[in-house]
């Protein structure tokens, strides 16, 4: 089977390309928020298609919390080179100087300062008027109501009631000074669509998505990988080698792995057939309360 036969994926692809082109056409300083994960890779692949035979007309932005998996960083730099796009990497230096990190400061504070605030810093510094992201509506309940072009007031605020209605694929992209948009071309994709598309289009993703024996410890009901020696171990904790993979990727001390034997995209798709859990269960930050994602969003996390 190829894309021409997969009508529903082809439709999703066309919609995403439309949104990406609109982001480039209607704004002055677009950027693609590149988190290095599978959704970002699909986004980048779609951007390359959207502007062919020309180049991708905007840079990638990566917010580096300094706690990403080592493998992610190496992968990021190589991919940016291969796609011929500019890569902007930003770290919240203030946060680093204050000694913020996921272990001592805790997940919420770390995420807020090193991700949310860092992102705002970068967007403000480069005066970005549209930031293209890979968020999907199926990821979380509060996302189900998110717009494709999500309006942010001065200071990046997200007001669920102040969002602009989207009809017929027409987008009101007009902004005043200091206001901005987040654009989500993958809004209507599901996790399964993402993996099916990765398979059909042969898109390369970080190997952390595939199972391999990795050194892990058991915490809060999930497997945390010991990616470097910054992860303090409890007295009785001994890293063990287990065949694990990740469904979502972020800062390594906050990303839970699942035990799995899936070593290829086809095997991942097969495993998904059997899974009874949503992909966010591995994300430690969510457990805080069922409205926590929405609160994050108001603060500008996405």
């Amino acid at each position: 089977m190829n894309l021409a036969d997969m009508r529903s994926l082809r439709e999703l692809e066309a919609e995403a390309i439309h949104v990406i082109r609109e982001s480039a056409g209607a704004f002055l300083r677009p950027i693609l928020m590149f988190s290095i994960g599978k959704d970002s890779m699909v986004l980048l692949h779609l951007a390359a298609k959207a502007f062919a035979p020309g180049p991708i007309p905007f840079p990638l932005l990566h917010i580096d919390t300094t706690w990403k998996f080592k493998e992610m960083i190496a992968f990021r730099d190589r991919i940016a080179r291969e796609y011929g796009v500019d890569l902007i990497v930003h770290t919240n230096q203030d946060g680093l100087d204050q000694g913020i990190n996921p272990i001592v400061s805790g997940a919420s504070i770390h995420t807020n300062i090193m991700k949310t605030i860092a992102l705002k810093q970068a967007l403000d510094h480069h005066r970005i008027d549209v930031a293209i992201g890979g968020a999907r509506r199926d990821e979380e309940k509060s996302r189900a109501k998110e717009r494709i072009f999500s309006f942010r007031s001065v200071g990046h605020g997200w007001d669920p009631r102040g969002q602009r209605p989207e009809l017929w694929g027409h987008y009101n992209t007009r902004l005043q000074e200091g206001e901005s948009m987040r654009a989500f071309p993958l809004s209507n994709w599901t996790e399964l669509d993402i993996w099916s598309y990765i398979q059909l289009e042969n898109i390369e993703v970080v190997p952390l998505y595939f199972s391999k024996a990795r050194p892990v410890v058991r915490r809060s009901g999930t497997w945390i990988m010991v990616d470097d020696d910054r992860l303090p171990l409890e007295p009785n904790e001994v890293p063990e080698l287990r065949s694990v993979r990740f469904r979502t990727l972020g800062c390594y001390p906050l990303s839970g792995a699942i035990e799995s034997q899936a070593g290829t995209v086809a095997e991942i798709l097969e495993e998904m057939l059997a899974s009874r859990f949503s992909e966010r269960q591995g994300r430690l930050i969510d457990g805080v309360g069922s409205s926590s994602m929405e609160a994050k969003k108001r603060e500008g996390y996405f």
């Binding site: 009508r7 529903s8 994926l9 209507n188 399964l192 099916s196 998904m272 899974s275």
Partner: peptide, 13 residues
């Protein structure tokens, strides 16, 4: 059965 997948693809949503 699997919660998210189905024999999809040949027709638009």
């Amino acid at each position: 059965t699997n919660p998210q997948i189905g024999p999809k693809g040949h027709e638009p949503r």
